[in-house]
Amino acid sequence: MVDRLAAAIARHSDGRWSDTAVPRLTVVALEEPVAPADLLYEPMVCFIAGGAKRTVAGDRSWVAGRGEMFLNSFVLPVTCVFEQVPYRSAVLRLDSRVLADLLLELDGSSPRPQPHPAGQGIALMTPELLDAVTRWVRLLDAPEDIRPLAARTESEILYRLLGSPLGPHLRQFALADSGTARVREAAGWISAHYTEPLTVEEIAAVAHMSTATLHRHFKAATGMSPLRFQRHLRLQEARRRLVAGGTTAALVAEAVGYASPTQFSREYRRAYGLPPAQDAAHLRGRMESAATP
């Protein structure tokens, strides 16, 4: 059954990451090994039908492979290492409102807040869930079926997920006033303001937490402190701009919020192992080599 899902993903991938006509569905297909990729995760569940991927965020990492699913509840800067290829996955971008409506329809109850927000999790796909995800992706084979069936199939997937080991994570995600929701709000706010000089006190006010509580919950959920989270966002965007070319390290440093080019170069080298310009040239060379038949 996993092979059916992998085949459906491959049919509808036009590159590494492909958004689709099905709402909230992205498909990922990689044929050859690629360099570790810096990505900004949204809240999502990744259903893996082939290969294996390691996700690294701060001091934490997770490895999920064929037949498994990985849940992330926050906006989160990560590094992805595709440890086995060919790699195939279908990604469901989570909508807290859709999930909350389903929970109310099912039992009208609210999940109890947990003392530590559970930001990520890995579990095996059950046969029933795998069947639902496969039918969801295969809607792309019949575009006329997407409008009447996509939302129903997504609801079935969420229903199956709620009964899985990831169910408690999802219930916390749907709860408006939980530690998970407050950390998610803080992470989203940092993502929107990462080029600005932020303080822990400002971020704690957004999350309606004390600074100590914010630090504890934020690190438990993301693997890093709020200000380290901000630094990751800055460095990821800087690397993207440098690889695109047509600029300098000093200009990029200023654009992502660094007052000191020296500090930017020091932190960049600590994160990526090379000075900014040298790292960008190295990455462009790898990309050009990969594109050459």
Rank of each mutant, 00 (worst) to 15 (best):
209 M>R: 09
3 D>L: 12
243 V>W: 00
140 L>H: 03
221 A>Q: 07
122 I>N: 01
250 A>V: 14
292 T>A: 15
256 V>F: 02
9 I>G: 12
260 S>I: 07
90 A>Q: 13
223 G>Y: 10
244 A>E: 11
147 R>T: 09
61 S>V: 04
53 K>T: 04
255 A>F: 00
281 A>F: 09
243 V>H: 01
39 L>F: 06
199 T>S: 12
246 G>Q: 04
112 R>K: 14
198 L>N: 15
229 F>S: 03
64 A>T: 03
263 Q>I: 07
282 H>I: 00
239 R>V: 02
129 L>S: 03
292 T>Y: 07
181 A>M: 07
22 V>Q: 14
9 I>Y: 08
107 D>A: 11
224 M>R: 14
293 P>S: 13
18 S>Q: 06
287 M>D: 08
223 G>K: 10
49 A>I: 09
154 E>S: 13
176 A>W: 05
178 S>Q: 13
289 S>Y: 00
47 F>V: 03
99 L>A: 06
7 A>C: 08
119 G>W: 02
76 L>H: 06
246 G>A: 05
24 R>T: 08
273 G>T: 04
33 P>M: 07
230 Q>G: 07
104 L>W: 13
136 W>Q: 05
27 V>H: 01
242 L>F: 04
223 G>V: 03
161 L>I: 15
112 R>L: 15
150 A>W: 02
36 P>M: 09
57 A>T: 11
204 A>G: 12
211 T>S: 15
56 V>G: 02
40 L>S: 10
10 A>Q: 12
129 L>D: 07
76 L>M: 14
8 A>H: 07
205 A>G: 11
102 L>M: 07
188 G>F: 05
137 V>N: 02
155 S>V: 00
204 A>E: 01
175 L>F: 10
217 H>L: 14
78 V>Q: 02
197 P>Q: 10
105 E>D: 06
129 L>A: 05
210 S>P: 13
207 A>H: 11
222 T>I: 14
17 W>E: 00
51 G>W: 00
96 S>Y: 15
256 V>S: 01
39 L>K: 08
288 E>Y: 08
37 A>V: 06
291 A>Y: 05
151 A>T: 09
103 L>D: 01
232 H>S: 13
22 V>R: 15
199 T>K: 09
96 S>A: 13
206 V>F: 05
8 A>I: 01
236 Q>V: 09
56 V>R: 03
231 R>H: 09
269 R>I: 03
111 P>G: 10
33 P>T: 04
252 V>C: 03
293 P>N: 08
210 S>R: 10
